[in-house]
């Protein structure tokens, strides 16, 4: 079973045991930091800008929230389904043999399709490395996952920034995995680099 998508990117130890029931940790310390930030900024807004602006902002926030919640639920469902349908090992085996530009392109494609946070992507990178992928392909995979990842675009970028912004950013980011892989090919490789 693939790991729980920690799209929040919050530091949590990367244990090898990534299945099994974990508590959802909805109200841990990071929640209280966000909570405090909301209260302080709301109070500051009321104090500085007055009650009318405070009300207007609060209603605006709640409207935005109502708008994006259904999208976030759908995006989480897609991510979870892709996660259970595509076994990590099969992807690693399919990509491991490919070398050169083809390997980089396939790795970039796989990166964009990998849902979830670092809890999903880094174990896959590790598996790809063990399956024999080159350093450039691994870097292309990670660059693609972080800049072109479909799940982040669906669940965060389009709901919050709009489809036009997302489309322009996506188009501008398409070359990035290849650029990073090309630059990494110019960097020196150690004699026994475990990831080269």
């Amino acid at each position: 079973m693939p790991g729980v998508a920690d799209e929040d990117g919050r530091p949590s130890p990367p244990s090898g045991r990534d299945d099994g029931p974990r508590s959802p940790r909805a109200f841990d310390r990071s929640f209280w930091i966000f909570f405090l930030l909301a209260i302080v900024s709301a109070a500051a807004c009321w104090a500085v800008k007055g009650e009318a602006v405070f009300r207007q902002t609060l209603f605006g926030d709640l409207r935005l929230l109502a708008e994006i919640l259904p999208r976030i639920v759908a995006a989480l469902c897609v991510a979870a389904l892709v996660q259970v349908l595509i076994p990590r090992k099969a992807v690693a085996e399919a990509l491991g043999d490919e070398a050169g530009l083809r390997g980089v392109a396939l790795a970039a494609g796989a990166g964009a399709l990998t849902p979830g946070g670092p809890m999903t992507s880094f174990p896959l990178v590790s598996a790809l490395h063990n399956a024999g992928s080159g350093r450039g392909a691994l870097i292309a995979y990670l660059t693609s996952w972080s800049t072109l990842g479909f799940q982040r675009i669906l669940s965060w970028e389009i709901p919050l920034m709009g489809i036009e912004f997302a489309a322009i950013r996506f188009a501008a980011s398409l070359p990035l995995p290849f650029v990073a892989a090309a630059i990494s090919a110019l960097l020196p490789k150690p004699a026994r680099d475990p990831a080269s």
């Binding site: 079973m1 729980v4 998508a5 799209e7 929040d8 974990r22 959802p24 940790r25 909805a26 109200f27 990071s30 929640f31 966000f34 909570f35 930030l37 909301a38 900024s41 709301a42 500051a44 807004c45 500085v48 800008k49 602006v53 405070f54 902002t57 609060l58 605006g60 926030d61 935005l64 929230l65 976030i72 639920v73 989480l76 469902c77 991510a79 979870a80 389904l81 996660q83 259970v84 349908l85």
Partner: peptide
């Protein structure tokens, strides 16, 4: 299994998202 994963993730994200968006709105005015 997917439904369980999604539900768990939702429970984790929701409280923080609500606070983050509210804070972002007020900070934007400030």
């Amino acid at each position: 299994e997917a439904a369980r994963l999604a539900a768990r993730q939702f429970v984790r994200v929701l409280p923080r998202l609500v606070c983050a968006l509210i804070a972002a709105g007020f900070l934007g005015k400030l």
